[in-house]
């Protein structure tokens, strides 16, 4: 077995996993790197990385042909391949249709039980649809991020998806903007699914990332989501200099 790479110390840090042709988008449309200090430390010690993937239907994997095609399952494979020798364990705790306030409650419970190094929090769509005021949403997300930070747990926000129908929805846009703002203010990694999916939708209109209900992702959609999250994480883990967030 190959020795695990040590973040920021490895002589040749692992390259970000290549994006497959259908999922290929400019790096700026995926995320701006941000540090993941806790995962970095675990990598340096050669420890197993425990990741809690929490959120709603996109985490659960609705629309995928099987549970192994959900984004957390695919992400685990991609990360283990990219970080050769590192044991990655991703726990999927997606609950369809859940708003951030309820997920925040579950995060505290799951963190106490599973003690993850990193929380991947996919959120926003259901709050927009439930018309949760953006400022209330922001307060919930910020307080949970601060709680996770205080407990030395890294957090990655995985934003709302792009669908042409909701692109003009006032609340949807407000929640998406709110997530960008939170990530910039809190200096945490934010995977801009909306931008990445919009790029694919505009450049490769013949590619179908959505299931037949035109709301949930299909296998390819989840593959792209996993690739984008993995790309953002690897870049962040081995980045030397941070670029400013470009909106």
């Amino acid at each position: 077995m190959a020795a695990p790479p040590h973040a920021e110390e490895a002589s040749v840090p692992p390259a970000a996993p290549p994006l497959s042709p259908p999922c290929d988008v400019p790096g700026t449309d995926i995320a701006a790197p941000a540090t993941l200090p806790n995962v970095t430390q675990a990598l340096q010690k050669g420890e197993k990385i425990r990741i809690l993937a929490i959120g709603s239907s996109s985490t659960l994997g609705l629309g995928a042909s099987s549970t192994t095609r959900s984004y957390p399952s695919q992400l685990e494979v991609i990360l283990e391949h990219a970080l050769k020798g590192v044991d990655i364990a991703i726990i999927n705790r997606g609950v369809a249709g859940e708003v951030a306030e309820d997920t925040a409650e579950r995060i505290k419970s799951e963190v106490a039980l599973k003690q993850p190094d990193l929380v991947l929090w996919q959120l926003g769509t259901n709050d927009a649809l439930a018309r949760v005021p953006p400022e209330e949403f922001e307060n919930t997300v910020r307080s949970t991020i601060n709680w996770l930070k205080a407990n030395r747990i890294d957090v990655v926000l995985v934003g709302v998806q792009y669908t042409s129908r909701l692109a003009r929805d006032e609340n949807y846009v407000a929640i998406r903007d709110s997530l960008r703002k939170i990530a910039a203010d809190e200096n945490i990694l934010y995977v801009r699914r909306y931008d990445a999916m919009r790029f694919i939708a505009q450049r490769r209109a013949n590619l179908q990332l959505m299931a037949s209900d035109n709301f949930h992702l299909n296998d390819l959609g989840y593959q792209c989501m996993a690739e984008h999250v993995a790309h953002a994480m690897i870049i962040s883990l081995f980045v030397k200099r941070l670029r400013p967030i470009q909106n």
């Binding site: 709603s56 239907s57 659960l60 609705l62 629309g63 609950v95 369809a96 249709g97 859940e98 769509t125 259901n126 649809l129 439930a130 209900d213 035109n214 709301f215 949930h216």
Partner: peptide
């Protein structure tokens, strides 16, 4: 015409 409502509150398993 809002399929995303079928997700709310963990109902999606009923339909999927």
């Amino acid at each position: 015409d809002a399929p995303y409502l079928l997700d709310w509150h963990n109902t999606s398993a009923i339909f999927n």
